[in-house]
Amino acid sequence: MPDFRFWHYDGVTAVRRSVLLRPAGDGFWLEEPESGWTGAHTRWSDLTVIGAEADRSVYGNSAIPGWRMGFSGEAPDGIAAHLPRGERYGRWIDRFGFWPAAGVFTVIAALVVWGALAAPGVIAPLIPRSWENRMGDAMVGDFGGRFCRTPAGDAALQALVAQVDPRHEARQVALANIPIVNAVTLPGGRIILFDGLLQQARSPDEVAGVLGHELGHVRHRDTMTGLVRQLGLSVVLGGLGGNTGAYLNGVLAMSYGRDAESAADGVAIDQMREARISPAATAAFFERIGGKEEGREAQAMTWLSSHPLSAERRRRFAAAVKPGSAYRPALDQAQWQALRGSCAADPKAAKFWGEGF
């Protein structure tokens, strides 16, 4: 032990010293016999590990910035017993081992992700309606004056809403001059039908099915739940590198979106049954927009889609048709033509390709 040499920087000068370590009580002295230099008494507890490898170990002093002490090889037992041990992964990870710690982290991460997915369904209903309404009112402004309004068209739309939503669960149903075959539900019970949907539909019964579907989102507060879930997933998965977090976020959110879409279809079928509107037209609508897709490839694509397969939706609406039922059209022919022609007849409705989109 007396001949075991350390190198040392005292943190004050740039002089590298070749020293011997002399244990003394709760610490030690460092001495350089050639020059007669002796350092201040250092406690073992003040030592910190800077680097500890098989052939080289370096220590610092928590009380003196810049203080360094190191050696090559293995220290004698009498000294090694007092030196702090290097931490490869972290204190408690080194204590339990890498793989057990990795297992614990995996379980915790799974629970956190599950919480981010499941909690929104509990949190969203607790959000005050007034907050949700204000959020939806703000989002309506993004449509930039593209709402179509004519006296006859408005009357037809209200007649359709009265049948599908007799309990007035939706705060507003409007028609926007957007040539996309779609409809959206905003927070606060606002439903917006796109003109592209009306032009693609062959009967008001098809639109009634879509409206009933959007009413399902209003009833279940799916839009608010989705916003809360996206926020939670963004926080939980934001630490993943590159695009990994964004991709995983999207897939997880879309899988829950499919559940919400399927439940909304159930509401549509119930509302159409109550209004005595045949779901056969909605089944035909899904068949036209891709309801014949079948096979393993189509099934696999459901993992990358926020909606169930159109073929599945077609079969569900078709199965809801009750033979012998006294169905009636959602609108008469004059009302249907007035509704479909609203955007073309309203000179104030902004065009889709104008400023803002």
Rank of each mutant, 00 (worst) to 15 (best):
P204S: 14
Q199L: 13
M135T: 15
T150C: 02
A174F: 05
G216L: 08
A174C: 07
G136I: 04
L126T: 14
T225S: 13
D195A: 10
W131L: 15
A174Y: 01
I123M: 03
D137P: 04
P166I: 05
G245A: 07
A110I: 11
G136W: 01
L197W: 08
A159M: 01
P151S: 13
Q230K: 14
T150R: 00
V173C: 00
A138D: 13
T225Y: 07
A138N: 11
L231Q: 12
V236P: 05
I127A: 00
G153N: 08
D165Q: 01
L231V: 12
G196F: 09
V181L: 12
L198K: 06
W131T: 15
G144A: 13
L160C: 09
Q163A: 09
R149C: 06
V181M: 11
P187F: 04
A124K: 00
P128I: 11
T185R: 04
L197M: 13
I108C: 15
M139I: 08
I123F: 07
D205N: 14
H220A: 14
L211M: 14
A156N: 02
G241I: 02
P166M: 08
I192F: 08
G196H: 08
N133C: 09
R229A: 06
P179F: 04
H213R: 05
G144P: 03
Q163E: 13
N243A: 14
D154R: 07
G153A: 10
D195R: 09
G239R: 11
L186D: 01
T150K: 03
V228H: 05
L175D: 02
I191K: 01
E214I: 06
A109R: 09
G145F: 10
I108W: 12
V228M: 00
G189W: 00
N182G: 10
L233K: 04
A124Q: 01
Q172K: 12
L193D: 01
T185M: 06
R167T: 13
A138H: 09
S203W: 09
A170E: 06
V207S: 03
G144Q: 15
R167Y: 07
